[in-house]
Design a protein around this nucleic acid. Structure first.
Lengths: 219, 219
DNA sequence: CGACCAATTGAATTGATTCAAGGTCCGTGG
DNA sequence: CCACGGACCTTGAATCAATTCAATTGGTCG
């Protein structure tokens, strides 16, 4: 369901994929602010703050996270150029957003009088589903499987068949996958020793066997 | 946000709470089928099957799950009397639903021509958010914390201040919390030895210190 | 060159799982 | 009525995966 109104537009995916058509449609019914630059690790909005506009990523990468009272951080999603974030189901932000690597962000205010509500909902729902299926895979998979899924998603997002640029550091990957950064590092080594990937530099992954990665995560 | 249209009606909660107003409104714009009885463990709809109507729980408990190819099962949510389930973001069921303990179910077909789409979306979104925040807590909490959160949620759902009736067995609780049934059993013992709960019977939990349980899961 | 930050690696520890018995409750049939 | 069988729950011991703690390496920028 949801085939009652929002239908076929929603597709599960582990990472929020760029969904050009819907976003384009959303942009058409919205006023975009100017590009503001957020240096690495700068906060975009805070947990607990009143939810305001949406945000459109012009360049760079953004992480949307939740902080537990014990200090542990869970990253719900990464957003990169062309994607929209800032949806939250409440008037107050339950999550906070930060620039990962220096990002250009525009505020995006849907023109409600033009009936943009439907467009907003579509994009919002897709985002929710993406986060949900990411969490679903996270709870049941082991460390190596999680990283394999992550790499395959990144390849798809970046439109590459054999390499991934990691815009975020190990700690971010860990908090996204529910692992420590040491475990992420160790798993990279396991995949490398297994001949599935290469790490020419810490922030670039050369995928040698996509099939090998896929074999891990048969979901 | 989603404060564009679906707003304040959506509230995060770990378990889908009965949301009388919204559900009542949804029922008003829908045709309800007769009550059909599903004995314990009977399937209500299958994974992969075309998504059809929604379902309203008259009595009993229902579990909505996903099966991984390796045979591991993840329960996304439990639904009990007065709740609606069967929402899925696709034309095809990504999840399957079963009766837990013998449940009476009515099919529920929204009357789209009467503009029921909005009502459906509200209820659907709340369900998604509930599942999401449940998964969010699952990934980062330890076994005892997960069970504490679960018990507190059950208390709230059942409107009790000091006891919980467990309609489901240990395996179900385990698959819901991402634990094995042995671990669930062991954690019950730990909580009991810690003086936080009592287990007069395996399916009834007497909560001695709600504060003690809450101290665990400060989220 | 030195300082700093990220990443890697190792060793010990923890937490949950797996495998393997028992124990309890309940319904059925002798 | 009691014995038996089966389903579920509990408990224990060994194992395994990931974390924690502790260096060490590598790269980058003053």
């Amino acid at each position: 369901m949801l085939n009652y109104g929002a239908r076929e537009l929603i597709q599960a995916g582990t990472l929020p994929l760029p969904m050009d058509e819907d976003i384009a449609e959303l942009l058409r019914h919205a006023t975009l602010g100017p590009v503001s630059f957020h240096p690495a690790n700068a906060m975009i909005y805070a947990q607990g703050e009143a939810a305001g506009p949406l945000y459109y990523v012009e360049f760079g990468t953004v992480r949307v996270c939740q902080m537990a009272p014990d200090g542990r951080r869970q990253i719900a999603a990464f957003y990169s150029a062309g994607q929209v974030f800032g949806f939250e189901p409440d008037d107050v932000h339950l999550f906070y957003a930060e620039s990962v690597d220096g990002a250009g962000i525009r505020s995006l205010r849907p023109k409600m009088q033009e009936g943009a509500a439907g467009e907003v909902l579509k994009v919002a729902l897709r985002g929710l589903i993406a986060i949900q299926s990411h969490l679903m895979m996270t709870v049941r998979l082991g460390a190596a499987e999680r990283l394999a899924v992550f790499l395959l998603d990144m390849m798809e997002r970046q439109g590459s068949e054999d390499s991934v640029a990691l815009q975020m550091q190990r700690t971010d990957i860990g908090d996204y996958l529910g692992l420590t950064f040491e475990t992420v590092s160790r798993v990279f080594r396991v995949l490398k020793d297994g001949g599935l990937i290469n790490l020419p530099t810490p922030d670039r992954v050369k995928v040698i066997s996509k099939e090998g990665l896929e074999r891990f995560c048969a979901v």
